[in-house]
């Protein structure tokens, strides 16, 4: 029983399910929801899913964080540092876009009194 489970549930599948689940749910919200705040939440979810995928690209099974804090650590025991640096960049960019989007929505709400994309005039897609 334990072996079957171990064969079925691998690290890969946990990460891929989390990542694709977030990306697809987020995009589904963006495509179908009409509330601007929810659309932004959807974008953020998709962004998070992609971040998980990028970090996973640097994962090496059983290895530790790439910090030489103890003299005994060797490079062969560590995971790939580049995707971790990439994900830092992409998180910050995602933060910037989200903050800007929320500010735009606040101003749009103040001008039009609605958060519904179908009620705000030009917004059709």
């Amino acid at each position: 029983m334990h072996n079957i489970l171990a064969n079925l549930v691998s690290v890969e599948w946990i990460i891929y399910i989390a990542s694709f689940g977030l990306i697809l749910t987020g995009l589904f919200i963006v495509f179908t929801d009409k509330n601007l705040i929810k659309i932004i939440i959807g974008l953020d979810m998709a962004e998070t899913g992609v971040n998980i995928l990028i970090v996973a690209a640097g994962y090496i099974k059983g290895n530790t964080a790439p910090i030489f804090s103890k003299a005994s650590l060797t490079p062969a025991q560590m995971t790939d540092p580049v995707p971790q640096a990439l994900v830092l960049t992409s998180i910050v960019i995602g933060f910037g876009v989200t903050a800007l989007a929320l500010a735009l929505v606040v101003r749009l709400y103040q001008k039009t009194g609605s958060l519904d994309v179908s009620k705000i005039r030009g917004l059709k897609w």
């Binding site: 690290v11 890969e12 996973a56 640097g58 994962y59 090496i60 099974k61 059983g62 290895n63 490079p75 062969a76 025991q77 560590m78 790939d80 540092p81 580049v82 995707p83």
Partner: peptide, 13 residues
């Protein structure tokens, strides 16, 4: 995912 650093050929390694 690679199971040891030797299996992975990347810039990060």
């Amino acid at each position: 995912f690679p199971s040891s650093t030797g299996e992975k050929a990347s810039v990060g390694v």
